[in-house]
Write a protein that binds this DNA or RNA. Structure first.
Ligand code: FES
Ligand code: FES
Lengths: 152, 152
DNA sequence: TTATAAAAGGATAAATTTGTCCTTAATTAT
DNA sequence: ATAATTAAGGACAAATTTATCCTTTTATAA
């Protein structure tokens, strides 16, 4: 469905949104450990997410790290996909044809378009903040570890 | 969403089901041209689809080629995904966690599970034959060419 | 003002996916 | 039988994705 890059981007952003604020920034080590992802690769992906004021904010140097502004929290999840250039999942033909439309439908289009629409809704109508709120309510997971990792 | 391999596998199988029968087999050249895919690569993928009596049938030598048996036409589209080992799209966590379940849900699970269910239905409840029938009714496309290619 | 801590950035490497080419095996028309 | 035709299979190559490492820049604590 999504590339590793997009998966890590989503997990990292949600994790940072959950735990990070402007005066409690998260370091790359904590993020990578928190979402169970390769550290250096995750750092690269966070660069995409921070570039030109996109989704994630960052500060270098001592006490630096990653966090999300209130503005960013209101962004749709789709903004994360855009940052890693993977929105096409929302628009693409399931058979990989160059065009997907009513005027040029593939044999699966009629059935697939409903799914596509819901995917679109999922990514466009859901904000990062909403996911954080849900996480606060229920007991949700964002890594593969057995129990939430204790801070040392 | 799907890999090129899976996309070509779906397109090739549907195309063969549409145009090929036991006494009108299709050659790899026609298939690749018909679905707008790289010939040699498509040949490799068709090997996966023919191996141990899976989805596509083939005969070598003069008058050889690819076709679908009546049994194969009744198979769910999922059988094609299985042949290229890509069923996981139906079961995987959208954030890439190793497990996706009610007992270990990620922050998007609640919303995504409905989509997953429909994807599952699409691939399991739809048979190859059904797609062919739909194609016969409507004017559907399975390649990127402007109009259906004339046979020379 | 110096040392330390952190992200940014660049180069490179490893792994996987996608794609090609050539030989082999099988079938059939001649 | 022989030649022609076609898929199968193996080896390899190109492209892309995933991942690591090292240096540079920026900020702050001491
Ligand atoms: S054309 Fe294939 S899904 Fe729309
Ligand atoms: S756990 Fe993530 S989609 Fe089910």
């Amino acid at each position: 469905m999504l590339s590793k890059t997009a998966e890590y981007a989503l997990r990292a952003t949600i994790y940072i949104a959950q735990k990070g604020t402007e005066d409690n920034k998260l370091g790359i080590d904590e993020v990578a450990e928190g979402i169970d992802s390769p550290k250096s690769f995750t750092a690269k992906i966070l660069q995409l997410l921070t570039q030109n004021d996109r989704v994630v904010s960052s500060v270098r140097g001592r006490n630096g790290g990653f966090y999300l502004t209130d503005r960013a929290r209101k962004l749709p999840v789709r903004a994360i996909l855009e940052a890693v250039e993977e929105e096409e999942v929302i628009t693409k033909c399931v058979l990989g044809l160059k065009e997907c439309s009513e005027t040029r439908p593939c044999p699966m289009h009629l059935q697939y378009k409903a799914i596509k629409k819901q995917l679109k809704q999922l990514f466009e109508k859901t904000s990062i903040q909403q996911l954080v709120e849900e996480s606060n309510k229920g007991n949700l997971f964002i890594n593969n570890q057995k129990a939430p990792k204790k801070r040392s």
